[in-house]
Nucleic acid binder design. Structure first.
Length: 466
RNA sequence: UCCCCGAUAGCUCAAUUGGUAGAGCGAGUGGCUGUUAACCACUAGGUUGCUGGUUCGAGUCCAGCUCGGGGAGCCA
């Protein structure tokens, strides 16, 4: 009598006639007056639950089995048999069912056996993993995370654990969360009246990281191929279905590489992880296709098969001007692309993922490499239909004199970047990298419209429950 | 942060011009059936988000607040 996971039983990996133990949670109970009840038991190992047949000869049939409701936890012992009914190949003919945990008040159990809106389920985020959708999202998320590590491992990348706490606002972009042990009610002051950070834990202002890029560049200059994959924080007051205050970002960085190598990596990498998803989570993807996004699987297959369109920023501007569309925001060389522009390019103009390259330098950060034309930098954005910007990256400026000039142009103080500048003093090499939003990667794959529904416990402005 | 929309039973939503609060699902009880979005009948379930205002009377009108959704900005 060995414990069996539902996925193994349903996949036919357990011989019919075996005595098995199944442990999990009840999804539904249906009673038949033929003298038996049908229970579906879910253990999260795959999308489908397994059906358990409970005959009324069980000792606890009248007083317990007939009181089972959705959400109860059970341990079922019985024989794995071929199902007599339609809808499933195998089921468990129970010889005993132990109710491990009852549902306190079935009338108010938040996850009733019915459809719920995602907005409602966010309010019960501790229970939503019990639903079909959030179970599927969790398995897809895990599958993609493992595929990320597998891709990099197989291609010789080292995973670098860049710090979560950082002492400098290195990118100069994005509001940061402060990290402090100072008493907010009684802040230490300098003689001038400013907050005296010398008294703080790190002896200086500290923040949660908005990117591991600058740190990971240090390891790139020794290990050649590196990446980060971890939580990232932005204190922006963004209220959209595409933004979180805490999200996970993947940032590869490659040495002896230029922007084209970078784009090649982005394309190869994305295709790899989505191919893995289609192969390993076909059950969950079938659900997303059926209930969430009718083209979910086809879209990923097309994504894998077609090559990414590569387009110069200048050509993108020309294409937008010639589109005949009336955009709300003006199209002009030197201006950044707005969401409406990006959507036109990827959804209408090329109808597949597009890599826009070489943007005007005045709209991009200081660390991006200046091109020979003197007015653009080697930046790239990967735009995907339906989701917009999924990757932002660049070749990095490896020339110290040009870097210094860019820091000065941007109006940043050079002192905090002394170690970043050192990389350019000691054996500098051309290198490049990008940042991929992990949640957006999941959104694109599943069709989940709101980013808050692809992370277990979303952190957004005014929301840190759970 | 800006613009628009919303908040009524456990959940999803109704409620004419301001006039006694309704349904479906879920839950409970009974019936029926190797069932599987089960089906049929009955029952229970409400300080209409909060605070104030207008009115004989407010779910409905007005103001403020809180929370949620969509769009925009910022970006991944």
């Amino acid at each position: 009598m060995s414990q069996v996971m539902v996925v193994d039983a349903l996949a036919g990996r357990v011989p019919v006639g075996s005595q098995v133990t199944v442990k999990g949670w009840i999804r539904t109970r249906r009673d038949s007056k033929a003298g038996l009840s049908f229970l579906t038991v879910h253990d999260g190992s795959c999308f489908d639950p397994i059906q358990v047949v409970a005959p009324n000869t069980l000792a606890n049939y009248e007083d317990e089995i007939l009181r089972i409701t959705a959400g109860c936890s059970v341990i079922v012992q019985g024989e794995l048999v071929e199902s007599q009914g339609k809808g499933q190949a195998f089921e468990v003919q129970a010889s005993s069912i132990e109710i491990v945990g009852w549902v306190d008040d079935p009338d108010t159990y938040p996850i009733a056996a019915k459809r719920h809106t995602f907005e409602y389920l966010r309010e019960v985020a501790h229970l939503r993993p019990r639903t079909n959708t959030f179970g599927a999202v969790a398995r897809v998320r895990h599958c993609l995370a493992m595929a990320v590590h597998r891709y990099f491992d197989e291609h010789g990348f080292a995973w670098i654990h860049t710090p979560i706490i950082t002492a400098s606002d290195c990118e100069g972009a994005g509001e940061m969360f402060g990290v402090s042990t100072l008493d907010l009610v009684n802040l230490p002051r300098t003689e001038e009246g400013a907050i005296d950070y010398a008294e703080d834990f790190f002896g200086r202002p500290a923040y949660l990281t908005v990117s591991g890029q600058l740190d990971v560049e240090c390891y790139c200059q020794s290990l050649t191929k590196v990446y980060t994959f971890g939580p990232t924080f932005r204190a922006e007051n963004s209220n959209t279905p595409r933004h979180l205050a805490e999200f996970w970002m993947i940032e590869p960085e490659i040495a002896f590489a230029d922007l084209n190598d970078n784009a090649d990596l982005a394309e190869d990498f994305l295709k790899f992880i989505y191919r893995a998803l289609l192969e390993e989570r076909s059950d969950d993807m079938a659900f997303f296709e059926k209930r969430i996004e009718p083209d979910a699987i086809k879209r990923l297959e097309m994504f894998i098969e077609s090559s990414f369109e590569r387009m110069e920023y200048g050509d993108a501007i020309e294409a937008l001007k010639k589109s005949g569309k009336s955009f709300e925001f003006p199209v002009e060389w030197g201006r950044d692309l707005q969401t409406e522009h990006e959507r036109y390019l990827t959804e209408e103009y090329v109808k597949r993922p597009v890599v826009v390259m070489n943007y005007p330098k005045q709209i991009k950060p200081f660390y991006m490499r200046c091109n020979d034309d003197g007015r653009t930098v080697a930046a790239m954005d990967v735009l995907a239909p339906g989701i917009g910007e999924i990757i932002g990256g660049s070749q990095r400026e490896e020339r110290l004199d040009v870097l210094d000039q860019r820091i000065a142009e941007t109006g940043l103080p050079p002192e905090p970047y002394w170690w970043y500048r050192d990389l350019r003093r000691y054996g500098t090499v051309p290198h490049a990298g990008f940042g991929l939003g992990f949640e957006r990667t999941i959104q694109y794959a599943t069709g989940m419209a709101n980013i808050r529904d692809v992370i277990p416990f979303p952190r957004t402005p005014k929301n840190a429950e759970f």
